[in-house]
Simulated assay, not measured.
Amino acid sequence: MAWNEPGGNNNDPWKNRGGKEQGPPDLDDVFKNLFGKFGKSGGNGGGSGKSLGGIGAGILVGLLVVIWFISGFYTIREAERGVVLRFGEYHEQVEPGLRWAPTFIDSVIPVDVQSIRDQSSSGSMLTEDENVVSVQMEMQFRVVDPYRWTFAVESPEQSLSQSLDSAIRYVVGHSKMDDVLTDGREVTRQRVWEELQAIIEPYNMGVSIIDMNFRDARPPEQVKDAFDDAIAAQEDEQRFIREAEAYAREIEPRARGQVNRMNEEAQAYKERVTLEAQGEVARFEELLPQYERAPQVTRERIYLETMEEVLGNTSKIMVDSKGGNNMMYLPLDKIMERQQSTSSDRSRNTLEGLQAPVTDASGRSRNSSPTTGLRGDSYREGR
């Protein structure tokens, strides 16, 4: 049973010692008693006490040396470079890997040289035409020289921020409000980049500007609606321009094709007319000897051939000049067209079904074919 359990005997080892109530011993008293014993043993032992003290001091020094040596190991990551300072002064630059530096003598500052860092700036600025705009831009940069980044300026990131803010205000102050808010944003971005490069170049800070982003540019709230309308109108203008260019790209090849087709047709017509003319010349050259041998026969044959060609392309009309004063005209081409239409109507009626008979006032059946009736009437009238 433990000495301090409830209901047990009070066997506290720090009480009732020497007949007195006392608490735990003070640590200072313990160490004094311990060192006192070592001192007495050293005085009594002579040379053996001195040797024990020397061994203990040597072990202590050895332990301290081991701890000091182990504490000097450090690691530089792949994306970093180490800047080594010896007694606070630049000593060297180390590559990635496991390294060792004497503690309390050298100190190492790791610098990331691969990551792309961001730095932004924003604020309300006055333009050249005395208008206020709110501009926000962001810079992306990377450290290329760890030594210059560490020692060129006291606070490199703060210096970059101030340089970016100064470049933005300078460029916006020398630009018009419409250029900053509308179609001149890209020019403004490029000018800010160039101005920032010119500002930080004398300091040689060991950084490289990767990109410059134009995040936002807004007019004052009082005129924001009007500027939104202006921006929308400019966007419509650009859209119309793109549509017109697309139409031009579409219609131009078609027009070129038509031009080429017309050129080819003209060339073909030229060749056809030339060949026809050459054929006519050849025909007349062949006809000339025949005409010289028999002029009358050749003239009549040419006349008949010409009339045959002319009459072959005109309507034919039969005229009956006999049998009285009445003259009946029978246009044969119209009659042929009616016969063809009648044949097509009969075929359609046959496919549709029964054809209803047609009777006259006397009850006699008549032929429903208009062509047949026309032919019969025409024949009777002609006779």
Results as ranks from 00 to 15, higher is better:
S208E: 13
P357H: 03
S122A: 13
R239N: 06
H91D: 03
S159H: 01
V94W: 03
G58Q: 09
F73V: 00
P110C: 11
I251H: 02
I109S: 03
A294H: 04
N349H: 09
E300W: 04
M125T: 07
S161M: 08
D236H: 11
R346S: 13
T188L: 10
S120E: 13
D112K: 04
M318K: 14
F240E: 14
F104Q: 05
S163G: 11
M307A: 10
E80T: 05
S208D: 14
F31P: 04
Q258R: 03
P24I: 15
G324R: 14
R366E: 12
E308V: 02
P146M: 10
S208I: 04
D106Q: 11
G279N: 07
V84I: 06
E194F: 10
Q22G: 07
V310I: 11
V30T: 12
S48Q: 15
R86D: 01
S341R: 14
V310P: 00
V108G: 03
R272G: 01
S120G: 09
Y291K: 01
T306F: 07
V358F: 07
E128C: 06
I55A: 13
P331R: 08
M1K: 10
A217K: 02
A282W: 09
N16E: 00
G279S: 05
R191G: 00
N263S: 09
K15I: 02
G8I: 05
D333A: 01
D12L: 01
I116H: 10
L85K: 05
R261N: 02
W100L: 01
S378T: 15
E309A: 13
V61E: 08
G382L: 08
T274Y: 10
D345K: 15
D211M: 10
R283W: 12
I302M: 07
G45Q: 11
A230L: 11
P295Y: 03
T371L: 15
E300F: 04
Y74R: 08
E235F: 14
V66H: 03
K334I: 10
M205N: 12
M212G: 02
D145P: 00
L64M: 11
L27C: 04
N16K: 06
R239E: 02
